[in-house]
Amino acid sequence: MSFDIALTINGLHRVVAIDDPRITLLDLLRERLDLTGTKKGCDRGQCGACTVLVDDRRVNSCLALAVSLDGAVVTTIEGVAHGDTLHPVQAAFIENDGLQCGFCTPGQIMSAIGLIREGLAGDDPERIREGMSGNLCRCGAYAGITEAILEAQARMQLEHKGEAA
C-alpha cells in the first residue's frame, strides 16, 4: 500500500510517496527527505527534540503519522532563517547561549517560535518557562533559552511595529 501525500515543507510544495503507513513525520523528514535538523531524542513525545510546526502549531513530529498529514504545511528548523539572516529566535539563542550541545536546540527553537506565535506567554518569564517545559535540555541551558525568547519576542514586536508604521 502506498499513499501519495501533499506536503508543503519549508515553503516547498511536494508530493511524497508514503510506501509504509508506519512512517512518522519525524522519520520522513530525517530518513527520507534529508531534513536531519529535526532531532530524535526519545521518539515517544517525552523530550521535545523533534518539535516542528504543522499548520503553524508546534507538535512532536515523532508522534505524527506522515500518512495522516496529507495537505499539511510543515516548518522545520531548516526553514526558519531567510538565507543567511537568522530568525530573531535563532539569533537570540546564540546571543543568550541558550544552547550547549545543540541537540535539543532545533526543537527548542521551533517550540519557541510556536510559543511566540501562540501569543499567550507575553513577557512573563514564568509563562515562558511553563510553555517551554515540553522541551528537555539535558545540558541545562534553560536560563538562556528563557532569556532568548524574551529578547526575540521583544525584537519581533518592534519589527512588527516598524512594519505597521
Binding site: E31, D34, T36, G37, I77, L86, Q90, L99, G102
Partner: peptide
C-alpha cells in the same frame, strides 16, 4: 564570544552522527 558553531546548531546544520545518511544505508 558566542558559540563558534552556534550558527550551525540553530539552523539544524550541525551534523550529529545519526544525521549522516550515506548511499546504500541500512538501518
Amino acid at each position: 564570544v558566542t558559540r563558534r558553531e552556534g550558527h550551525l546548531k540553530v539552523t539544524g546544520q550541525a551534523g550529529y552522527a545519526a544525521d549522516y545518511n550515506p548511499p546504500g544505508l541500512l538501518h
